[in-house]
Design a protein around this nucleic acid. Structure first.
Lengths: 243, 243
DNA sequence: TGGACGCTTTGACACAGGTCAAGGGAATCC
DNA sequence: GGATTCCCTTGACCTGTGTCAAAGCGTCCA
């Protein structure tokens, strides 16, 4: 179910790939040294549940590599993804032990963990961590609110185009055609977009037939002209925060 | 357009109605004294715009009385409400001068304001403010994510029932029938729920005809049995954060 | 090699909610 | 007192998306 990732443990924070974006981004050397003594690593395989809705979470932590989903469900099974966690994103919340969301590894995931009680103390002692966490939370809040516009007002085609453009933009290398590997199954995309799997599939097929995107296998997406895709997304400007 | 509310200015923070819930909730006496020297009050009438999307906001602050809406729009005019601000809620964000949302007074509103630059310094100097702001931001994030489930997965009837149950629960006095005054027009409700005004109207009419709610004028709502309304909202349990 | 399984695509059809249009009722204003 | 305006309701109709069903295509495993 999980195991220590020997490739990562033992390396110091200074070589950590998320060093400058995660909750520790603003830490000074001494603060980092303290974190170093507290942290541990853990991995999950794609599809594994990191935590269930209502679970008591004994830890908090940062995604180091991979991608995880945050979902909320109704009793009858209807499910909505409420967040997509990428490297450097923070999981858990100080001051609350139970998680109101289900967290699932979408790809293989490795996390840098802290025991919750210790982390809560850390926030009080080292203001830089609290300040960074506030910044990150406010960014997430903006992203969540942006997504509310997508869920509440966009058409299925716009929703799919929005998601594809976000994924393409995030893995942008500057080279045309833009190329990205979807970290999500059709099912996860539907859950994210508030659609059914069939509608997602139809919209992707339609975008492909119209030459706006091309596919490579089931997960690869290519796009020659992002601006066309952005218009399909109902979103001319660059207004989106990068979630 | 705005004026100083003489009824409030001059009163100290200690008698402030949002003293224990706002961003200043955790402040000690000395911190409060500092706040006292920085704050100012300002009022807006129902319908007035507090800030437009993209505006530079020279201040941050707390809603003291009234109710304001936070909305995000697409170029073609489609609009989604992304937050409903009630007394003690915080407006603005430290570390960013422009607002990504439009803020409009839904009812008459009065706010307790701080100049942004001073407030940013305050967060660094007085950890209790930063900690409280983090707590509040995380609560808002939870609320935003809860709302994503509403927008993405609930039917029109469930959406309307959800909104009514939230409003009724918030103004709960414990007495049956529950009674509340809607702070929103049908139009604002539609914007909040990701519906059209007509659909909101039809669903309210339907709930009334089925005896689940009663109306008093256009804004008053009565409910004899909240549990029935909660079932219509697709939401048996008490799981919702109170936004 | 063949079967089972997971994920995706496609088609036919139904219906929830959007669109368009008309009208009602209560303020407000001249 | 009538006109205007704002907000809300109601009706008729249409369409986008959900539902249900079937089939395609890899991959894994026996």
């Amino acid at each position: 179910m999980s195991k220590i990732d020997l490739a990562v443990v033992g390396e110091g924070c200074s070589t950590c790939p998320i060093r400058h974006r995660a909750v520790c981004a603003k830490c000074e050397a001494d603060e980092l040294a303290r974190l170093e003594t507290m942290k541990s690593y853990r991995d999950w395989r794609a599809g594994e549940t990191i935590c269930m809705e209502g679970d008591v979470l004994p830890f908090v932590g940062s995604i180091v590599t991979g991608c995880a989903t945050l979902t909320r469900s109704m009793e009858d099974g209807r499910t909505q993804m409420v967040g997509l966690l990428m490297p450097s994103d923070f999981v858990g919340r100080p001051g609350r032990s139970s998680a109101p969301y289900e967290v699932v590894a979408a790809t293989d995931v490795s996390m840098c963990l802290f025991r919750r009680a210790e982390f809560e103390q850390l926030i009080i002692d080292t203001p830089h961590v609290g300040q960074r966490l506030l910044e990150m939370s406010l960014d997430e809040l903006d992203a969540a609110r942006d997504w509310m516009l997508v869920l509440g007002r966009k058409t299925a085609r716009e929703k799919v185009a929005t998601l594809l453009s976000i994924v393409l933009r995030r893995s942008a290398t500057g080279q045309v055609p833009l190329r990205a590997e979807l970290p999500l199954t059709r099912d996860a995309m539907a859950t994210y977009l508030g659609l059914t799997i069939e509608t997602v599939s139809r919209q992707i097929t339609a975008l492909k037939k119209e030459g706006i995107i091309r596919l490579e296998g089931k997960r690869g997406v290519l796009c020659d002209d992002l601006s066309v895709l952005l218009i399909e997304a109902g979103d001319d400007d660059d207004g989106y925060a990068d979630l």
